[in-house]
Each structure stands twice: as C-alpha cells, then as structure tokens.
Simulated assay, not measured.
Amino acid sequence: MIILAFFLAHWYLSVSMQTLFLHRYAAHQMFTMSKAWEKVFYVLTFIGQGSSFLSPRAYGIMHRLHHAHADTDQDPHSPEFSKNLFDMMWKTRIYYNDILNNRDTIPAKFKKGVPNWPWMEHFGDRWPVRLAWGTAYTLIYIQFATSPWLFLLLPVQFLMGPVHGAIINWYAHRYGYTNFKLDDTAKNLLPFDFLMMGESYHNNHHKYGGRANFGGFRWHEFDPAYPLLKVLNGLKIIKLRTGRDEAYM
C-alpha cells in the first residue's frame, strides 16, 4: 500500500504541475503571477516531476508550436508523422533538447513571455540530479515494496513527465470522442478525467486554446485543475485572464 500511495502521489503531483505551470501558464499564459511565485512553481515542478523534470521554457515553446501546426509536418509531436508511440517520443525528445540547448530556429513569436529561470532549468536537467531522484525512488521501493511486481512501476516514475505527455500527444489524437470539428485529430480521451487533471479533454482544448477550464461542454466533463486555479486566483497567488477562449497563436 505504501508503494501504491507513493506512486499515486507522484503521479498526481507531477501531472498537476505539468498542467498548471508548464501547460496553462508557460505555454498558454492563461493566468499571470509574480516572478517570486513563478520561482515557487518552478521548485514545485522540480519536486513533482523529479527525475523527469521538464523545462517550463522549452515545454512552453514546443507546445505553442504544437497548437500552431497541429498534425502537420511542423508539429513537434504528431502521431500522423510517427511510426508508433516510441518513435514519436524519441522525435519529441530531440525537438525538446534542441530548444533546451538553443539549437533551434523557431521564430521569436513562439518564445514571447515564456518563463525562464536559467539556474533551475540547468540544475533540473543535470544527469547527476536526475540520477539522485531515481536512486531515491529505488530506495523507497527496496524498503517498502511487498512484491517484486511493484518494481514494474519504477520506470514510469523515472519518466513520469514524458509519460504524461505521451498519453495525451499520442492517445488523445487517436482515441476518444469529439465535441468540436477541428482541422486536426485532437480528441477527448476520457469522458470523466480522473487520470490527467483535465488534460485528456484535448478536443475541447484545441478548440479553445486560451480557455482555462478544459471541461464543461458536457455534463460529465469535469476539469479537476480548474477549481485549483480558482482557489489560487482567490488567494491572489495568480490572476486568471478572462475572455481568452481563442487559441494561443
């Protein structure tokens, strides 16, 4: 039970920081926050994603390109241009690393306003740091795992951030239902998103890329991240932007 609780806590903290900070803030600027709070969220993302920490700057830029060029040959991670899930993940990794290391030729408009804390971006990406997180996870499993089968969860924990991205970028362009007719293949993967904190309402999000609430178009669509944003807004930690139903670019 301890290992399952640890895995679930890691899963939901990781996906929460990915949807709140990397996706809704860094990529889409659905809300604003002070530079001090931005650094707090950087640290929370580092803790939440651990060994699979994703650069908010690189993620934000890459995701903006995904919306601007969805399901074309300029999309950083389209299933339409990949042989399988792992091929797409490998291509995404190369694209991401080019942005992270400033080897890209992406137009400046896609980089405007993305958060950038160079020290944390560098620290979180260092291999000794990633290995330290992975070692910590492994020691917890050695101490508390009650069955060898539980160790099969460890690779997912090592790669939690990319796993979350792959679920949406592959499966939510392959399976599910649609509320809106689009020029791309984005679908709502889950009728009730208990797994991805609203991220699986991908068809809704591609229709209204600036809308902070990803659900709400059918009675069963509940976006768990949106109430969190409302609470943070009420506490004046963030300031939600209104009237932003349009796509980012």
Rank of each mutant, 00 (worst) to 15 (best):
G113M: 01
F180G: 04
R244T: 15
Q49V: 05
D193I: 00
L152E: 09
D87S: 10
D223I: 00
F81D: 05
N101L: 11
H10M: 12
Y177C: 13
F158K: 07
H173W: 00
L240P: 00
V40C: 12
N203F: 06
M88A: 00
V114E: 06
D104K: 02
S52G: 09
F180L: 05
R211C: 09
F53C: 04
A26Q: 01
L159D: 08
Y59V: 10
H63C: 01
H202R: 04
A108N: 15
G176E: 05
N203K: 01
F214T: 15
L44H: 00
E38C: 07
R174K: 15
G209A: 03
A212L: 06
I47C: 09
S52P: 09
K91Q: 14
L13I: 12
G198D: 03
H202I: 08
R126F: 10
Y175K: 12
F31N: 03
H10F: 09
A172K: 03
P56Y: 00
F110D: 00
G216M: 05
D73I: 15
S200Q: 05
D125R: 14
S51G: 07
I3A: 05
S34C: 00
D184I: 02
G176D: 04
I47R: 02
A145P: 00
F41K: 04
Y175R: 12
L54P: 10
N169I: 03
S82W: 01
T45V: 03
F31G: 04
R174N: 13
Y59H: 06
F123S: 02
A186C: 06
N233W: 00
V114D: 03
K83P: 07
N188W: 04
T135Y: 11
A132Y: 02
F110N: 00
N179K: 09
N179V: 06
Y175M: 12
A186S: 14
G210I: 07
L4I: 14
L189R: 06
Y25V: 04
R103M: 09
N213F: 11
K39I: 14
K109C: 14
L240T: 06
R93H: 15
Q143I: 12
P227T: 01
W149N: 13
N102E: 10
N204K: 04
R103Y: 04
V114Q: 03
T92F: 13
K181Y: 11
Y171S: 14
A9L: 14
G198A: 01
F158P: 14
H28N: 02
L85I: 14
T19I: 13
L139A: 10
Q49Y: 03
K109V: 15
T19F: 08
W117C: 13
G134H: 09
I238D: 01
N102T: 13
L4A: 13
W117N: 15
M160R: 08
M249P: 15
A212I: 05
L190E: 08
F158H: 14
P115A: 01
H66K: 05
L139C: 04
L159A: 14
R241H: 12
L190M: 05
L131T: 07
L44N: 07
T72S: 06
R174Q: 13
L13Y: 08
Q74M: 15
